[in-house]
Design a protein around this nucleic acid. Structure first.
Length: 507
RNA sequence: GCCGUGUUCGUCUAAGGGUUAGGACACCACCCUUUCACGGUGGUGAUACGGGUUCGAAUCCCGUACAUGGUACCA
C-alpha cells in the first residue's frame, strides 16, 4: 500500500556544486536509502541562458566522489528517462494547456516593455516591486482580457507568449513541511508566475511539479529559498488533479557565511580562504578549489555537511555514511540556518584520517606522493609510515612533509635549532653511536632506544639533550614521531648516513 | 515596502514546563612528550529584548528587535 520512497536531487547545471547543494543531495540520498527507496538525479536545465558547459558532468563527478550515487540519472538512465528537463520540453506543454483549459492559467502576450511599463506605473514607496497579479492582470494583454478570437488570432501568427498561473484570490494555501510543520500563505500576496516561457521552456515552477509527478517522487527536499514559492507548487499539484500524489516536502535550512551574513556563495570561499565547492571547479572565470583537492576525505566532507542542521540527539559527531543512513531523521533537522565553520570541518577531516586505517587512506595519499615524485619503495613500508604519521595530518597534503623524510634524506636541515647547544661531547656521542651500530643486532625502535640511552648514560649526557639533534639529523626539522621509530623505519645505513652528513655540516 | 522563515556560548548544537543550561570546534592554562601531533585535566563563554500564561519558562502565547529567504519569461 505504501509507495516506494523516491527522492530526487534536482540541480541546475550552472556551475560548481556548492556545499548547500551537496547537503541537499546527501539528505535526499539518506532518506531514500533509509527507506530502501531510490535516489534520482534530475538536471533542471530549463534556463538555457544560464547553461554552463561541463556542469552536469561535474555534478555526476561530485556525487561519485561523495559516494552518494543516484539510482537514476541522465548518465545512468532509468525507467523515467529522460532526466534532463531540456529533453522533456515537449511533455510540459500539455499540462500547461490543461491548466489553461481548467481556467487556472492563461496566455499572456505582454512584451518585456509592457511589463516594465506596468511596473513603473505601479511602483511606489510602499510597493517597490509591483507584481503581475489579480490587481493588474485585467489591465494587461492576455487571454483573460482578450476575446477567444483575438487570442487565437495572436497564437495563429506565432505571437510570443508565456503561460501564467492564475493565482486565486482570498485563499489560504496550507501545507505540511517535514521540518517546519504547518506553513501557510495568503494567495492575495502571490503573483501570476510564468509557467511556460516565450521560448517554450517551462519555468522551474511547472517543471518541478510535472516531473516530480511523472517520476513518482514521494519526498521533495530543497533549500529554504524555495519556501516562498511552495504555494505555487501546491496549487499546481491541486489544479493538475494530482493532489493525492503530492510529495512530502522538506525545506532545508540554509548554510550561511561564517562571518557576516547571508547565504554562502562562491565569492566567499575565495575571500575567506576555504572552498565552497565539493570538487575543484574550473570554468572560463578561473578555478575554484574544492574539498577534494585541498585534501578532504569524502567521508569527512559528508560528515561535516550532515552535522550542519542535523544531529541524532546524542553527543555523537562522527558518522559514517552507513550510520547516517541508519540514524538520519528529517524531523530532527533544524529550522534555522547554520553558519559554516571551516575549522570544524578540518577537525572532522582529522578525525576521519585518524579513524581510517592506513590501507584505506593509502588510496588518497598515494597519488599525492606520485605528484611529488616521491618514490614509494614498497607498499608495506608506505602503509607503515602512513600509520605512523596520520595523527599529525589534518589535511591529506600534510602527509607529504610528515612522511617525505621516510623516503628521502631531508634537504633542508634546521641546523640553527641545535647549533647553539652543540658541543664536543655530543659530537663524540654521535660519532661513536654510528661507529658502533653493529652492536644493535635487530634495528628495532626499542633496541635503538635502549642502546642510545645506555650510550648516553655511559657518556654522562642527558638523553633528552641528544634527541633533538638526532631528530634534526634524521628529519631535518622539529616534528614527527619518536626518533627511534624513525631511525628504525628508515634503516640502519640510512640513519648512519644522515647522522654523518649533519656531523659534517656541524664540523 | 510586503510576505515567508528563523533566533541557546564566537561557531555547530543538546535540553520538547522543574538540569549547577550539557557536548563539540576554536581559544586559554596545566599534564603527557626534552620535537610536532595525539591524548588527558581544567577554564573563559549562551537562552536577543519586553510583556504575559504558570507554583515554576530556553521551552507555551503576544509584541519588538535583529537575521535570513523570496518578491524575474533564474533556479
Amino acid at each position: 500500500m505504501s509507495k516506494i520512497v523516491r527522492t530526487r536531487f534536482a540541480p541546475s547545471p550552472t556551475g560548481g556544486l556548492h556545499l548547500g547543494g551537496v547537503r541537499t543531495a546527501l539528505f535526499s540520498y539518506l532518506y531514500a536509502k533509509q527507506h530502501n527507496g531510490q535516489f534520482v538525479l534530475r538536471i533542471e536545465d530549463t534556463d538555457q541562458t544560464r547553461f554552463v558547459e561541463g556542469a552536469e558532468q561535474y555534478i555526476n563527478d561530485t556525487l561519485t566522489w561523495c559516494g552518494i550515487e543516484p539510482d537514476e540519472s541522465p548518465a545512468k538512465g532509468g525507467q523515467f528517462a529522460p532526466y534532463r528537463q531540456s529533453e522533456r520540453k515537449e511533455m510540459y506543454m500539455q499540462y500547461a494547456l490543461q491548466l489553461i483549459k481548467s481556467g487556472n492559467a492563461y496566455y499572456a502576450f505582454d512584451t518585456p516593455e509592457d511589463l516594465e511599463a506596468m511596473r513603473n506605473a505601479h511602483r511606489s514607496e510602499t510597493n517597490p516591486n509591483p507584481q503581475y497579479d489579480a490587481k493588474v492582470r485585467m489591465t494587461m494583454k492576455n487571454s483573460l482580457t482578450l476575446s477567444a478570437q483575438e487570442t487565437t488570432a495572436l497564437l495563429d501568427v506565432n505571437t510570443r507568449y508565456v503561460v501564467r498561473i492564475k493565482m486565486p484570490e482570498n485563499e489560504l494555501v496550507t501545507f505540511t513541511d517535514m521540518i517546519r510543520h504547518e506553513v501557510s500563505f495568503d494567495t492575495n500576496l502571490l503573483d501570476d508566475k510564468v509557467l511556460v516561457k516565450a521560448d517554450g521552456m517551462p519555468t522551474y515552477h511547472l517543471a518541478v511539479v510535472v516531473d516530480d509527478y511523472l517520476m513518482n517522487i514521494t519526498h521533495a527536499f530543497r533549500g529554504e529559498e524555495w519556501l516562498p514559492s511552495a504555494p505555487i507548487h501546491i496549487l499546481l499539484w491541486k489544479y493538475l488533479g494530482w493532489e493525492n500524489d503530492m510529495p512530502n516536502w522538506a525545506h532545508l535550512p540554509l548554510i550561511l557565511k561564517p562571518d557576516g551574513n547571508g547565504k554562502l556563495s562562491k565569492r566567499d570561499g575565495e575571500r575567506l580562504g576555504f572552498p565552497v565547492f565539493a570538487k575543484k571547479w574550473t570554468d572560463i572565470n578561473g578555478t575554484a578549489r574544492g574539498y577534494d583537492d585541498i585534501g578532504f576525505l569524502p567521508s569527512a566532507f559528508l560528515n561535516t555537511l550532515v552535522m550542519l542542521g542535523w544531529n541524532d540527539g546524542t553527543d555523537q559527531e562522527i558518522f559514517s555514511l552507513a550510520e547516517m543512513i541508519k540514524k538520519f531523521d528529517m524531523g530532527r533537522v533544524h529550522k534555522g540556518g547554520a553558519k559554516y565553520d571551516y575549522e570544524k570541518a578540518k577537525w572532522y577531516n582529522q578525525e576521519w584520517i585518524k579513524k581510517m586505517d592506513a590501507a584505506q587512506i593509502n588510496e588518497f595519499v598515494k597519488p599525492l606522493f606520485a605528484t611529488e615524485n616521491i618514490d614509494i619503495k614498497n607498499e608495506d613500508y608506505f602503509l607503515a609510515v602512513c600509520e605512523l604519521v596520520k595523527e599529525r595530518c589534518g589535511l591529506l597534503p600534510e602527509f607529504i612533509p610528515q612522511a617525505r623524510y621516510f623516503f628521502e634524506a631531508p634537504i633542508a636541515i634546521d641546523i640553527d635549532s641545535i647549533k647553539l647547544k652543540w658541543n664536543d661531547d655530543k659530537k663524540n656521542f654521535f660519532t661513536e653511536f654510528i661507529a658502533s651500530t653493529d652492536k644493535i643486532s635487530d634495528w628495532s625502535a626499542e633496541n635503538i632506544e635502549e642502546y642510545f640511552k645506555n650510550l648516553a648514560t655511559e657518556k654522562n649526557i642527558k638523553v633528552g639533550e641528544l634527541q633533538l639533534p638526532m631528530r634534526i639529523m634524521l628529519v631535518g626539522a622539529k616534528y614527527g614521531p619518536t626518533v627511534f621509530q624513525i631511525a628504525s623505519r628508515i634503516g640502519k645505513e640510512e640513519s648512519k648516513s644522515r647522522i654523518e652528513k649533519v656531523l659534517g655540516i656541524l664540523g
